[in-house]
Simulated scan of single mutants.
Amino acid sequence: MSARLNSAQPYALGLFRIVIGLLFAVHGAASLFGVLGGATGTGGTVDAGTWPGWYAAVIQLVAGGSVLLGLGTRGAALIASGSMAYAYFDVHQRAALWPIQNGGEPSVLFCWAFLLLVFTGSGAFGIDRLLARRTVTAGEPAAEQAPLAA
């Protein structure tokens, strides 16, 4: 049983990456374009150039899309994780210490999910894996490559 679970790990990680990236990108799209209820839940958007809301939304859209596609996953995840740490400590923790008290649970969860992706990489189904396979020279094994989905 353990061997089967281990062999499925790159695929589970790839699906995890896709879901986290999609959810993060949707937050950015909602804030920037007012889709899906917008930044305020009423279709509103954040004003262009405002700190930190507009910059956070751009990071969410771009880094989330990059993580979703598995393109530059580790770098995008590092930026996304840092932005969520900033959001938690600058915005939420002012209200109360614990995330359950200050509404910061999404920020904490995104921060740790992205930090995990910094260390694990994209898993299966990512553009990173396709590009890594193309850059490997003939006869030279690629380190830590997950198989591509069939």
Rank of each mutant, 00 (worst) to 15 (best):
M1S: 11
S2F: 14
A3S: 15
N6W: 12
S7Q: 04
A8P: 05
A8R: 13
A8Q: 12
Y11S: 13
Y11V: 09
Y11R: 11
L13P: 04
L15W: 09
L15G: 13
L15P: 03
F16S: 05
F16A: 14
F16W: 03
F16Y: 12
R17D: 11
I18Q: 04
V19T: 09
G21K: 10
L23G: 15
A29V: 10
A30H: 08
S31T: 07
F33H: 10
G34N: 10
L36Y: 12
G37E: 11
G37L: 13
A39Q: 05
A39P: 07
T42S: 14
G43E: 10
G44Y: 09
G44P: 15
T45R: 10
T45G: 12
V46H: 07
D47P: 11
D47I: 10
G49N: 01
T50R: 12
W51V: 05
G53H: 12
Y55C: 01
Y55N: 02
A56R: 02
A56I: 03
V58I: 12
Q60M: 05
L61Q: 01
L61P: 09
A63I: 05
G64L: 13
S66H: 01
V67T: 01
L68T: 08
L69Q: 00
G70H: 03
G70Y: 00
G72Q: 10
G72W: 02
G72V: 00
T73N: 11
R74A: 01
A76L: 00
A76F: 00
L78P: 08
L78Q: 11
A80C: 08
S81E: 01
S81C: 00
G82K: 02
G82I: 02
G82Q: 07
S83Y: 14
M84V: 06
A85I: 14
A87G: 07
F89C: 08
V91G: 05
V91Q: 08
L97M: 12
W98L: 11
P99G: 08
I100Q: 15
G103P: 04
G104A: 11
V108A: 12
F110E: 00
C111F: 09
C111Y: 05
C111N: 01
W112Q: 07
V118K: 10
V118T: 13
T120L: 05
G121K: 01
G121D: 04
G121L: 00
S122Y: 00
A124E: 05
A124V: 04
A124I: 05
G126N: 10
R129Q: 13
L130V: 15
L130E: 00
L131Q: 08
L131G: 06
A132N: 13
R134G: 04
R134C: 02
T135F: 10
T137A: 09
A138Q: 06
G139V: 11
P141A: 07
A143N: 08
E144C: 03
Q145L: 13
Q145C: 08
A146D: 12
A146S: 15
L148S: 06
L148I: 01
A149P: 00
A149S: 10
A150E: 04
